Amino acid sequence: PLVALGTVADVVRLDANNRRLVAQGLRRIRAGAMPPGVAALFRAAGRRPEVATTFDFGFALGPRINAAGRLADMTLGIECLLTDDPGRADELARLLDGINRERRDIEGGMRDQAIRLAESLFGMQQAVEGQDKAQAGMPAAISVFDPEFHEGVVGIVASRLKDRHHRPVFVFAASGAEGKSHELKGSGRSIPGFHLRDALDLVAKRHPGVLLRFGGHAMAAGCTIARDQFPVFERALAQVAAEWLDAATLTRRLETDGPIDREYLRVELVDTLHREVWGQGFAPPTFSDEVEVVSQRLVGEKHLSLKLRLAGQPVDGIWFGQTEPLPPRVRLAFRLDADEWQGVRRLRLMVEGAELPR
């Protein structure tokens, strides 16, 4: 169970051997054979271990363990996983759950501010999904900083911005108490085709002294800069990205398995898919097809709830993080999921993207 949790939560590639290890961990957890801390984390997250999935590892248990290292003391998560005392495990899991709620609150505020900074700095309104953002005034790389940003959450916010704008992104926070440090610590996330660590190396060569420390790999990196050097770094990274990236690389693409036959649009297929092992390098099936948008509304102020007609069949959909309305007919990329209302489980589409007319 610990190997399975660590493999998925740390986004390790699911090659043949890793996928076998995760499958064995899931089998044990579903049978109730797991450390007390893992069981306690399932309870704290409101998830059911008897139907555990890799989604639980990546989006329920993993964030609660990681939150301690971001905002408090990372040894809390370690102790939760190692303890043999069920009572202590429950206590620690509840504590980690509370820290994770605080992390989400901080992240939400930072994310919204980072989005505003990214879009105001470059004189653009939020680009419609599918629009050529290079033509909308957005540079090839984004760097943002705010004195109120929390150092422990910059990586998560950078990842959210990267997903939103399909650009390499660095988010900086002041290193030290109350944002008064003369140094900034930044965390970056990249897109395929842009090696982030190599880009930092080139910035360091072109602008000696700007980067005090840096390291990382192709898709994620970190660096420390002097606070007054942020404008220099911002321009330098954007320049490297403009040289290395073309319009095709800066266009977000989703690989899909194409349309799904109507006979498979049922909850039983969702259950079959959930029992399998998905993750980095072994993605779950994503389908795409043209749908009719019957109705749509915002829920929670930031998610689009949809009533759709797919292959002549009515079906619900949800697009998390999407606020722009869709046209009456549109091609969607989606995964299959199910939700439950008043004891009845129904098929639901988890929308991943849309191909909109230009």
Rank of each mutant, 00 (worst) to 15 (best):
G186W: 04
G179D: 06
V169Q: 09
F172H: 07
D198A: 15
Q229F: 01
V299S: 07
R20F: 03
R43M: 01
L196W: 02
K133W: 02
V277G: 15
S288C: 13
A311S: 15
V51Y: 05
I142S: 12
G32A: 11
E183P: 00
G6I: 02
A93S: 06
D271M: 08
Q342G: 04
Q125S: 13
I142P: 12
E183D: 12
G32Q: 13
H217I: 00
G215M: 05
A67F: 04
C223W: 01
P63M: 14
Q131P: 03
G343M: 06
V232N: 07
Q229K: 13
D105R: 11
L349S: 11
A9V: 03
A247L: 07
L5K: 05
T286F: 02
V267P: 10
P139S: 12
D15P: 04
P327W: 15
L71I: 08
W341C: 09
H182V: 01
G188D: 07
R345I: 02
P36S: 05
H207M: 00
R329H: 14
D339P: 02
L237N: 05
Q239C: 08
S295N: 07
P86Q: 04
E268V: 05
G321F: 00
A134P: 04
V11H: 13
D271Y: 02
T323S: 15
T83W: 02
E324D: 11
A16T: 03
R48T: 01
V291G: 11
V232L: 08
L304G: 10
A177M: 06
W244V: 14
T272N: 14
L71P: 06
P168H: 06
R358A: 14
E243G: 12
V128S: 12
E79S: 05
D201A: 15
A333I: 03
A242I: 06
P86F: 04
P35I: 01
